[in-house]
Amino acid sequence: MSSEKSVQATQLTRKFGDFIAVDQISFDIPKGEIFGLLGPNGAGKTTTIRMLCGILTPSSGAASILGFDVSKQTEEVKQRIGYMSQKFSLYNDLSVSENLNFYANLYGIPREKVKSRIAELIEIAGLQGHEKQLTRNLSGAWRQRLALACAIVHEPPMIFLDEPTAGVDPVSRREFWEMIYTMAGRGVSVLATTHYMDEAEFCNVIGMMYRSRLIALNDPDSLKDEMRGVLFEVDCHEPGRAEKILRDLPTVQDVVAHGVILRVLMTDKTKKVFLEKVLTENEIVIDRIERVLPTLEDVFVSLVDQENRLHVRAEID
């Protein structure tokens, strides 16, 4: 087994009774990379992370962190990972420095170094001057930064962040990702889940989860290139009626309304003139039709769409 890989998951599966929450997932994370795990609610992201951190045991399949098996070498794994859970899980009635102190002692940071390490973390998290403040009274963004600081007290080479920026304002989200980038720059590997597509763009590799399975795995640009079909942005009068008409076309895969602008995903080789013709025939006034590059969100929507169609077909068969 290569220890160059920070994470190696093979056919990782977890069942809760009859329900399969994670279905045969395989992926690697090389050292120093940022891996983004995307997917709708209930896709199985948290369950995957929990298995990798040794909180849940896999029903089948295997995973290793830096070459250590997650179900057999739990002590070795624990010393090397940092985990920030989806639900905020620091002690609200403890102050910023008390929380840090608690984890520093649990992780066995040498006593003489505890103080300097905490000072360092407070600086990384930008919490100077708030050491004595109770965690309960911190704003959302600061809490998340404190949670991250607590998770990296012992300088782990691998960190797992489960929706670290949920409910945080855009500016603070960017600051948070700066922190993640800084760490990755020092060789730390990161696995983060998120619902924000702009954050996904920051990742070196993206895994898309849907219905317990990994439906795509690649870097953001390749994912966009791979996307089947062509995307058009349509700005026209009567967008509601236009949406209905376009949806009924056999070559249209999906139509999404972004305010008054429609994003129309066509199957291969469709030309702009074709769309213009259809809309004009239906007496809709067109302001603008333009071919655009897909965003990760488009990629995701299209993949999910494809997946659902396969699913429906499988059920009919």
């Binding site: 985990y83 899980s89 649990l106 066995g108």
Partner: peptide, 13 residues
Amino acid sequence: EQGTLEQLIVTPV
């Protein structure tokens, strides 16, 4: 209940 146990599980305690 508050989810802090989850955080404790990943520590060496």
